[in-house]
Design a binder for these strands. Structure first.
Lengths: 346, 346
DNA sequence: ACGACTTACCCAAACGATTGGGTAACCGAA
DNA sequence: TTCGGTTACCCAATCGTTTGGGTAAGTCGT
C-alpha cells in the first residue's frame, strides 16, 4: 500500500506514535517482533490499536533507517556472468523467490566473466552494504574468493564450485558420467567433447565425469577430442568445426557441456551434411526449455536450476546466521531425445 | 576496496575527520561534490589531504545513511515478466549498464505477468524506497499504472507501451509492417499470425502493423488466421497447431511476434511434415541470438534490446530530475534468413 | 582604522528506526 | 507495611550522512 500523510510524506513510526499518543519505541516494539518481544512491551489492547492504525495508514518501515541502526540491509548481492544466459537467469529466479520468502531482496549484476569486472561488481555490491553475496561466476583460478574470505565477507558460490568454499551446484561429475553411460550403451566408441571454458568448474567437472567414466568403460578419448570453447552457440559451432577438421576417424557422438554450445554444434554438423540423430549423436547439458523444442529435440542432462538458486539462498542465510554450511550438489537426470536416440554399431 | 578499521568496522566520515582533526561535515563537503561545493568549503590543501586519506583508508560512503538524510536511494526498480525471457534479460543488461553509468543500482523482480504479482512486486520495490521504477511488464488493461501516477511514483515503461505513459520500446508497428512487406514481396498471399498475448502492446502492435500493412497491400487475412498465444515455445507450437487445423487453404507463411513462439511453430510444422523455408515461411521477432544459429536459420525482426534498456534508464533519469519526457520508439530491422528466403507463386 | 568580504572551517539538527535502560503504578505475598 | 515482581510504558542515544547556519581570522579598500 505504501501510503502518505496529508502533506505527502510517507508514514513513519513517529506519525503512528503521536497519533496514538504513545512513544515511537513502543510502536516499534509492537510492530517489530511477531509477538515475542511485543509481549511485555505493550498491552494487548494497545498492540491491537497500533497494528490497526499501521494497517490503516499503510505504514511500511524504512529499510534505510532500520538498516542504518541494525547494520543489516536484508539485501543479498548476486553476481552472474550474464543474465542473458538462460541457465543463470533461471537460477536467479530461484534466488529471487527464495530470498523473498526469507524477507530478503536481491541485487544482480553481470560480470561478463571478466575478472576485472568481477572485482568492480563485488565492490559495488559491498558499497551498497549487502548482507552477503551469491557468486555465480567463480573462476577456478581467481584469488578474489580468498580475499573476500579474508575480509570476512559472507558469501556462497552457486552454479560453479571452487574447492574450499561453500557452494550450491549441480553434480556435474555425475552429469558427465550419465552421458558417458548413455552414449556407450548406444554403441558409440568414438566420441568428442565440447568442453566449455576451463576456468569454470561446470565445464571441468562435466568433462572430467564424462572422460573418466568413458575410460572406466574401456573407451578411448584422444587428446584432441576434447575441445575447450565458449559456452554460447557460436562457441559450440567453432568447437564442432575443430572436431570435424581434426578428429580422424570422425566421432559418432558429441557431448557439449552446455545446450547452447550443443545447438551450435548441431548447426555445424548440418552444414557438413551430417544428420544429427542419424549420423552423429549430440547431447547437451542443462535441459533448457529449448532443448525439447528444437526441430531435432536435443538430448540433455537436466540440472535443477531453480533448486540450485533456492539452495544458494538457503546456504547464504545459514552463513549470515553464523551457522556451519556444507556444499550441496544436486542430482541431475539425463533426458534422452531424438538427437542421440539411435543405436550405432562399432 | 571497502576497507575496515582496526576493530573491523567499516570506515566512516567521522573516522576520517577525527584522524585529520577536522569536522565530519567538512569532510563530507569535500568528498561530496566534485569541486563545486568543495570550493569554499575547505582549502585546496585540506581537500587534498582528505581525498588522499579517503583513498588510503578505502572509504566508501554508506548509502543507507546518505539515503536516510537525502531521501533518495539511487536505486531504480525494474519489473519484468520473467528474466528467463531472453528478450527481457538483454534489456536488463542495457539497464544495468546505463544505470551504473549514472551512479544508480538496480533491483529486478519477476512478475510472471500476473497482475497480483505485479502489485506485490511494485509495493515491495516502493517499500525498498527505490527512486523510480522501470516497468517492463505493463498490461494494456491494468489500472496499476494510473494508481502509480496518482501516487506520484516516478516510473517509465519499457518493452511494452501503454498510451499516456512514457515508454522506451521498439517500433513494433513498423516491425510488423516490415514483415508484411517482406512476405508479400516473396509472393505469399496466404498467411497467418501467431499473435502473442493480447494484453501486451508488443503483441498487439506487431500484429496490427502486419495486418494493416497486409491489407493495405491488397491482401486478405481471415479472422481465424490471427491466433493469440503465449510467448514461449510451447505457446507457439500450440498456435501453429491451431492454424494448421483450422486455416484452409493452409498458409504458406507464418509470422510469430516472438522468436520463441516461432521456434515452437517450426517444431509443429516439422511434425506435420512441412519443410520450414521450403513449404512454409516462418518469421520471428527480436532476432535473439538463437535465430541465426538454428538448424534452419530463422528470419526475424531485430529489435534494439540493449538500447531499449539503456533508453529506459535515461528516460527515468529525466523523470527523476523533474524534466519532461517523451516516449521513444526505436527502429527495428528485418533480418531475412533461410526460414523465409524463398519465392512462392500464387 | 574601520567595515565589508572572503576563506576555511565548526556546530548541531535532522533523517527514521532500534534498543538498553529506566520508572511509575499496581498486585500479591510475607 | 514493605518488598519483589509484573505490566506497560517512556527516554535518549545511536547508526553515518547531509546541510543550513554560524564565526573567527585574515584581506582589502578607503
Amino acid at each position: 500500500m505504501e501510503e502518505t500523510t496529508a502533506d505527502g510524506r510517507t508514514v513513519t513510526l513517529k506519525d503512528l506514535a503521536s497519533e496514538l499518543g504513545i512513544h515511537p519505541s513502543t510502536v516499534s516494539r509492537i510492530l517489530h517482533s511477531g509477538s515475542e518481544v511485543a509481549r511485555g512491551a505493550a498491552s494487548v489492547a494497545t498492540a491491537e490499536r497500533v497494528r490497526e492504525l499501521a494497517r490503516k495508514r499503510g505504514y511500511s518501515p524504512d529499510p534505510q533507517a532500520a538498516g542504518l541502526r541494525t547494520r543489516r540491509t536484508h539485501l543479498m548481492g548476486v553476481i552472474v556472468p550474464r543474465l542473458s544466459d538462460l541457465v543463470l537467469a533461471i537460477m536467479y529466479e530461484g534466488i529471487d523467490e527464495a530470498a523473498a520468502d526469507l524477507g530478503y531482496s536481491t541485487f544482480v549484476m553481470n560480470s561478463r566473466d571478466d575478472p576485472e569486472e568481477q572485482r568492480r561488481k563485488t565492490d559495488s555490491m559491498l558499497a551498497r552494504r549487502v548482507d552477503g553475496l551469491i557468486i555465480g561466476d567463480a573462476h577456478l583460478d581467481s584469488g578474489l574468493l580468498q580475499e573476500l574470505a579474508a575480509r570476512k565477507v559472507p558469501f556462497v558460490l552457486m552454479n560453479r564450485r571452487v574447492p574450499g568454499f561453500p557452494s550450491a551446484t549441480c553434480d556435474d561429475v555425475l552429469g558427465g558420467e550419465l552421458v558417458a553411460d548413455h552414449l556407450w550403451s548406444m554403441g558409440h566408441r568414438n566420441v568428442a567433447v565440447i568442453a566449455g571454458e576451463p576456468y569454470a568448474s561446470t565445464a571441468v567437472d562435466r568433462t572430467a565425469g564424462f572422460v573418466d567414466r568413458w575410460r572406466a568403460l574401456g573407451g578411448k578419448i584422444p587428446r584432441n577430442a576434447v575441445v575447450w570453447s565458449r559456452f554460447d552457440t557460436a562457441g559450440g559451432r567453432e568447437a564442432a568445426e575443430t572436431i570435424l577438421a581434426h578428429c580422424n576417424p570422425r566421432p559418432t557422438a558429441l557431448f557439449a557441456v552446455n545446450d547452447f554450445a550443443a545447438i551450435g554444434a548441431m548447426g555445424a554438423l548440418r552444414s557438413h551434411g551430417l544428420g544429427v540423430g542419424r549420423d552423429v549423436a549430440v547431447v547437451g547439458f542443462n535441459d533448457t526449455s529449448l532443448a525439447a523444442e528444437l526441430p531435432i529435440p536435443l538430448s540433455s542432462v537436466r540440472s535443477p536450476m531453480l533448486d540450485i538458486g533456492r539452495t544458494a539462498v538457503q546456504l547464504l542465510k545459514r552463513v549470515l546466521d553464523g551457522r556451519e554450511v556444507e556444499s550441496v550438489r544436486l542430482k541431475p537426470v539425463l533426458c534422452v531425445r531424438e538427437s542421440s536416440d539411435f543405436v550405432t554399431s562399432v
